[in-house]
Design a binder for these strands. Structure first.
Lengths: 342, 342
DNA sequence: GTTAGCACTCTGTACTCTGGAGTGCTAACT
DNA sequence: AGTTAGCACTCCAGAGTACAGAGTGCTAAC
């Protein structure tokens, strides 16, 4: 696969970079003129013909220039690209953006998504932690009207989830407070998943049968934990409208449709959680047929020592990988630090 | 203004309805044929010419049909339109959609926005309550690392807000619990705004100087309340892509841009909070120049007896007012009921 | 192995032409 | 006086044609 001559690689790189710049089929003359290579257009044409045979280039029609294929981008990212480090300037921008912020902790994810989009000029995407994997810090029950109870669950990193549950019987506010205390002492420092199995175990325990209060508390907390979806934040949709490849409304619609089905998106991003570092999906590699002409760059982020979620950037295949990769990488690190429990 | 003959009104109505259906300039023949009026195209042309003089109609060019102006839509909405009641079917759909939902209470607003968008086929919009006007139910401080404290504020209707604050000194978890209890007893049943002024008053009180704990608690809660933005949820952007008037990407972009500036949008919707019932802004009436070709239908919603926020639908001026108005109206009522503290 | 030259191909744009839809006006009709 | 039929006129959208520009592939020369 890698048996390209040095010169071919150079030319391929030049074509890809030109295409990234212009979003238009690249002709042999443009390459011969603009890039340092002192070769005539004719020579370059020969090389281009070879590259086309190898499926690195495609021509929309006989007399247009050539367009790099997904395969070419993949090769570019794997072998040709030298990823820079992030700008000092951008680094500060990110820091400032986060600092400015001091309100609802849940907002942190939306903010992250916004940061990614505004720095990359594409779309920013953040998948929030599955609550089950996060560490548990605090639980609280608050009586609303009738039998409705508001359960509030706080993770170690300060993320708050809440949920309305229905109790089987009428409980007083005081009961509620006592139950909260009970549970907090019992369950401190477990992950939500552990918490859950612990609760189920306790419920079967002999002692609990006689401790009515604890039994009720456990029952409520079981309800609270029973299902906790992840959320996906996507910001910067406007940026995509800017891209010439989506000048046509039909394609636009395709892309927007793709985001309606968050399930697919989540499962794509889930795959990145397993290993560290930046992942790149080019074109059809993302297995979402609505997103065939787009690339996704992702990185997992952690809370403490555990990977809890994924963030990234979605843009056209023709995106500025060298520029975006460090942004995604750095943002993931900053977010991880924010979620760390010192 | 209203000195149109009955016949003119009928014709204007017919033109508007035809235009809503087709999104295309309406010709005299179409009206003469399709609508019950037994008049020849020529007669209708005469009337149309009059209506054009009165600024109710405009023609894009000599030999196209006519398009209703904003003024015409305003007249239509005020004088011609008979608003139906909501479908039994849709009513159930809304109920079901809300019931299905039992997770994070904050999600209720996003869900509402989604309901509005999917029923109207335009965009749904919800402005969340300014927290200051809502009734307060519960406050809770939780110690994170170091001096960082997570403050959780629960409103009467079960909406949870949280915020990280920084304490001046190191406080133990036990202190935190005691402080929470203190405050909850002291402040039960006040609105956030009242709460705030109460706290400030207490802080100046002699007694408090000696009660160190209470002083600290008040200080923390003051920090917690100091600023609380509203959020805007917009769902169903894809629906707008379906509309023929936005087939052109340039216009599309305009609209999407408008939503980036949430400030403008909020101030528009704020104006609706003052009075009850459905408000309608047609075209330029919304004072957002990016949104000139769009109409906004809004209704305030309440929590208990107090108006706390606004929801609505944004669509092209040419939208199905008769269909959308009851949807907005009914949804506001259902949401109010959900937020009511029984 | 590289390059100049040339014939060939394809697209995008400009231009023209034509049929259709719609108007405005006038004159005839009720 | 209000309504209508008829007709000339206008404008647009779409089809067809011509043409310049960009690019290729091939061949022959360097």
């Amino acid at each position: 696969m890698d048996n390209l001559s040095e010169r071919s690689k150079h030319i391929l790189e030049a074509i890809i970079e030109e295409y990234i710049r212009t979003a238009e089929p690249v002709g042999s003359r443009a390459i011969s003129r603009r890039h340092g290579l002192t070769l005539s257009p004719a020579t370059i044409r020969n090389v281009m013909a070879d590259l086309e045979d190898l499926d690195f280039l495609a021509s929309p029609h006989t007399s247009a220039g050539r367009i790099p294929t997904d395969k070419a981008f993949r090769f570019y990212v794997d072998s040709l690209l030298t990823v820079g480090t992030i700008d000092r300037e951008q680094e500060e921008l990110i820091q400032r953006q986060y600092r400015l912020y001091g309100k609802d902790v849940g907002e942190i994810f939306k903010e992250t998504s916004r940061i990614l989009s505004s720095l990359s000029h594409y779309m920013g995407i953040v998948v929030t932690p599955r609550f089950t994997t996060t560490m548990f810090r605090h639980i609280e029950f608050i009586k609303l009207g009738g039998r409705r109870i508001l359960a509030i669950l706080v993770s170690k990193s300060g993320i708050v989830q809440n949920k309305i549950i229905e109790a089987d019987e009428d409980l007083s506010s005081e009961d509620m407070v006592r139950m909260s205390n009970y549970l907090n002492n019992l369950l401190k420092g477990l992950s939500i998943a552990e918490l859950r199995s612990r609760i189920l175990r306790e419920m079967q325990d002999e002692k609990v049968r006689y401790d009515e209060m604890l039994a009720k508390a456990l029952k409520l907390s079981e309800q609270t934990l029973d299902e906790n979806g992840t959320e996906v934040f996507i910001e910067g949709r406007v940026n995509i409208l800017e891209q010439p490849e989506f000048a046509d409304v039909g394609k636009m619609r395709e892309v927007f449709r793709a985001f309606e089905e968050k399930g697919q998106l989540i499962s794509l991003l889930d795959r990145c959680m397993e290993s560290e570092g930046v992942h790149i999906f080019i074109g059809a590699e993302n297995y979402m047929h609505h997103l065939e002409s787009m690339s996704v760059i992702t990185a997992p982020y952690m809370s403490g020592k555990e990977t809890v979620g994924v963030l990234g950037v979605i843009g056209p295949t023709r995106m500025g990988y060298d520029r975006v990769i460090p942004i995604v990488d750095y943002t993931a690190k900053v977010l991880s630090k924010l979620l760390d429990v010192e």
